[in-house]
Structures are given as structure tokens and as C-alpha cells.
Design a protein around this nucleic acid. Structure first.
Lengths: 219, 219
DNA sequence: ATTTGATCGGGAATTATTCCCGTATGATGC
DNA sequence: GCATCATACGGGAATAATTCCCGATCAAAT
């Protein structure tokens, strides 16, 4: 990376791209700015231009931001990605960082931070929005804890968890999976136990917060 | 409104404001553009500058977009508001329109639509994003239907609904409201009946989708 | 071959929910 | 005032859901 920094902006909101671009162009450290409104073309543009930094939204139609991050990093493990998202929930930050991004900014950040983050990351550093960093510091938070707990579910339990999360009754789940109602009841008890909750409603809300949406078919 | 159109942008994301402003400035029909990042100052700026059109985000910290719309319309019933939101769920559109806005755009709209919408509304028209208009057309959708159903709940039932929606058990609700567990059970049955659902999980999810968050205290 | 983890479900006790019932209260209309 | 109606509350008995403890089965790992 010699000379000016080149940036690839990936966001399905044209308005956001334009706004971000405007700020980037205020800095003389930053040169070319490429844009993409979808994940698929982002990968192509990355290979074509080899930008120093990729600024990316998480919630996009199609394969979504996380999957895009994964694909970019497969192509180039040294790819420098800065997430620019509306989500300030720790779970998103944690996931993104785990996925291998170099920075995380929320969309209502002070514009000056945008430049700071982009140049910092281009220079090989990392950047997490101050407010988020603080949250991350006092880790082991509820969200993360729950994430860990969900991982404790066996595959089958997870399937049942997903169906219950949609508001289905234990009986409906049993019918759909062709098992005894008793089995689902027993599983349900175990699941709630592992997740540290007491009602199926909590289960539904929890799954909802975590954006868990796996589809399960009967065998 | 003679001469150029003046616009007040209300959005807590500086990036979005900048992007939108950039587009507005491309049109020679549009003159002054004022900006605000919060609801409170938006009302002041509106009275100060009397802009022809207010472009507003819905999800903002503080009193929120809907409340801001209400306040603006109290001050000036002819205030022309264009909502510019990430939410494309019909329920938001319906609420906004019911609140009295003149237009609704989603943030990933084609930039050309922004100008079209702003100028159209300034001229006294209305503008709803094409995709949303179509959705609206086939009204009486689930969301709207549910909204109607929720209205059928008695005040007390609604309180209980809100508590159950948080994932609390019937027993916890009973304790909190100082009534018999039996009562809450009976109410719960009635509520599910009125809402056309079968499980408390569905209730929780439904309330969640509708963003129902009333706080209820014991007496 | 044995252990381990996962899945499935029965039996009996417990708990939750339903359905139907009656009471009480406050607002509305005549 | 008095009837009426909607609302809130909750009991009793039947029914359904859930728990807890148990054993069976199977596949993969050691």
C-alpha cells in the first residue's frame, strides 16, 4: 500500500455510500473509492481493484454481510474489512470480529471516526468504535453468554429449538419431526435448562434476538 | 413555496444526511438544506426555517421518529413530512401514513426517487415507494389484521398481553399484578383467542414484530 | 470391547390450562 | 333509581402439558 488509500464501499443503500464517499474524499490520504451495492459483485470488484480497505454493511439482501466477509477472506486472508453497520448489539460485533474483520463502526458514528478508522485499518491496525469497545471489554455479556449456551445444544436439540422458536407447540414439533410428543417435551425441558430460561416464550424471544432461522424438515 | 425548495433532514446518521444532501444538491429545484440529528432540535429548526419538506428517519434515539412526526404536525398541521427509513415492513408504513406523513421511502431506494419524492411532496403531492405501495394495496394483510385484533383486547388484557410478551410465565404475571394465577390463565386464554393464536410463544413473537413495549406495574 | 454421547420414549407425579360458572364494580342509558 | 353491559376477578373440575427418572438403542470414538 503505497501512496493513497483505495477503498471499496459495499452497502445496498446508495445514500449511505454517497455520504461515506463524501467524507472519504475530504481526506487527501484517500484515493480511489469503488462502490458496490451487493455482495456478489463486491467479491469481483475486490479481485479487480485490490482495494486497501473494504467498508461493508452487514445487513444486505442476498447472501448477507457475514457470508461476504467469509468469502472475501477465503480469497484473500489479508483482506482488511471495516464493518459499518446500524447494529450496535454486541452480538453482531462479536460475530464480525470472530469472522475476521479489522474494524467495526456503527452508522451514527461521528464522521471523523470514519476517516480515522479507514486510515488506521489501511495502516494495518484495527478499529472498534469506542462505545462498542467498552461493551466488548466487559465481555461475557448476556448475548455472548447465550451464544455459548446455544452451542451446548445437541444437533437434534437445536432443530427442536428452532421449531419451538417459531412459536410452534411441542405437539406440532413432534408431528413435524415424527417423534413422540413426550420426546419433544423432554427435549424442551433440556433445552430450556441449557439456555437458562423457564418458558417457551423466552426461547422464542431469545432466538429472535439472535436471528436464528434455520429451517428444519421432518425426516 | 415560491422559488427553490427548502428541506430539513432529520437523521441521527451523519453519513445518511450527507449522502441525501449530496443528491438534493444535484437538483436545481432544491435550495437550502438544513440538518438535524435529533428529534428535539428538529422541531426548533422547523419553526425557525419553515422548510418546505421534512425528510425524517424513524428510528432515532430519544423520543423517536413517530413522536417527532406527531409533534411537528401539532405545531403545523400542513407540515410535509417524508419518511426515509430502513424499515420496509408494512406496519411501519401504515403507522407513518396514519400519523399523517406525506411520503415513505426506504433507504435502499434508487437515488433518483429521492428527488422525485421530495419535489413531488413539496408540490403538495404524496409519495410512497412503489414496492411499498403495492404491499399497501393488498391491504388487510396479516400485520394490519393483527393490529386490529390487538385493539380488541380490554385494557387489562392488554397489560397482561404485554407482560406475557416479555416471556414471563402466567404465574409471574399473576404475582406482578397481584391477582390469582387462575385469572391470568383465563385471561391468557381469552387473549390468545382474540389474537387467533395458540401458544404464548406466538404471542411473544407477535408482540415483538409489532414493537409493543408498554411497561406495566403492579397496582 | 467398552465407553461416551445422542436420540427416543414410557410411567407416574406434578403443574398448567381450559371451560364453565358466578360475583363484583363502574359506566351508560332509560 | 334501575336495568344493562362491559370489564375484572377467580373457583371447581376436567383435561392437557410438563417434569423427573428411568431404560433402550445406536453410532462413533478409544
Amino acid at each position: 500500500m503505497s501512496g493513497k488509500i483505495s477503498v471499496l464501499l459495499v452497502d445496498d443503500h446508495a445514500v449511505v455510500r454517497t455520504g461515506f464517499k463524501t467524507y472519504l474524499e475530504l481526506s487527501e490520504k484517500i484515493g480511489a473509492v469503488f462502490e458496490s451495492d451487493r455482495c456478489e459483485s463486491a467479491c469481483r470488484l475486490y479481485e479487480l481493484h485490490q482495494p486497501d480497505v473494504v467498508v461493508m454493511d452487514l445487513s444486505m439482501p442476498g447472501i448477507g454481510g457475514f457470508e461476504t466477509i467469509r468469502r472475501l477472506l477465503i480469497r484473500d486472508p489479508h483482506c482488511k474489512i471495516l464493518v459499518f453497520s446500524i447494529h450496535d448489539e454486541l452480538i453482531y460485533v462479536a460475530r464480525a470480529i470472530k469472522a475476521g474483520v479489522k474494524g467495526y463502526l456503527v452508522k451514527n458514528s461521528d464522521p471523523e471516526l470514519l476517516i480515522t478508522a479507514v486510515t488506521g485499518i489501511a495502516a494495518g491496525g484495527t478499529f472498534v468504535a469506542p462505545a462498542l469497545a467498552q461493551k466488548l471489554a466487559m465481555s461475557a455479556t448476556d448475548e455472548v453468554l447465550q451464544e455459548q449456551r446455544i452451542k451446548q445444544l445437541t444437533p437434534r436439540e437445536f432443530d427442536i429449538f428452532c421449531l419451538l422458536a417459531k412459536g410452534k407447540s411441542t405437539r406440532e414439533v413432534a408431528d413435524q419431526l415424527f417423534v413422540s410428543h413426550k420426546t419433544v417435551c423432554n427435549n424442551s425441558t433440556t433445552i430450556k435448562d441449557k439456555l437458562g430460561i423457564k418458558t417457551l416464550s423466552e426461547l422464542a424471544l431469545l432466538a429472535n434476538r439472535h436471528g436464528i432461522v434455520k429451517e428444519v424438515e421432518g425426516r
